[in-house]
């Protein structure tokens, strides 16, 4: 597979480490919403179809990416820096 790295262009998937569902970005706050941690830690979507996933460019520039991939066809519909996705979802410090 080739992953279209937003900074480096197409890179072989071998350079990356896979983590999984990009919902891991939405970590709850441990002090104010501890009841949400079970779902956060254990419940993940695993769709047959379009999926947003976290990939780490470990053999490259160390960017975490959010890759939109069709898990059936392996078609990749886009890749952005996870940092930007996180900010877009209201995460900051």
């Amino acid at each position: 597979m080739l992953i279209p790295h937003p900074l480096l262009g197409p890179r072989d998937a071998q350079e990356f480490t896979y983590l999984g569902d990009a919902a891991l970005i939405d970590r709850p706050d441990g002090l104010t919403e501890p009841e949400k941690f079970h779902d956060y830690a254990y419940l993940r979507d695993n769709p047959a179809g379009v999926h947003k996933e976290l990939w780490f460019h470990e053999q490259g520039d160390r960017s975490w990416l959010v890759v939109t991939r069709n898990t059936v066809t392996h078609e990749i519909l886009g890749a952005v820096l996870a940092r930007d996705t996180a900010r877009g979802r209201g995460r900051s410090k």
């Binding site: 891991l24 780490f56 940092r83 995460r91 900051s92």
Partner: peptide, 19 residues
């Protein structure tokens, strides 16, 4: 050494991107 570094980068970039 490698998994911890990967984890720290995850925390830094995905959880608290503005630290």
């Amino acid at each position: 050494a490698v998994p911890v570094f990967r984890h720290l980068e995850f925390c830094r970039q995905c959880l608290w991107p503005d630290l």
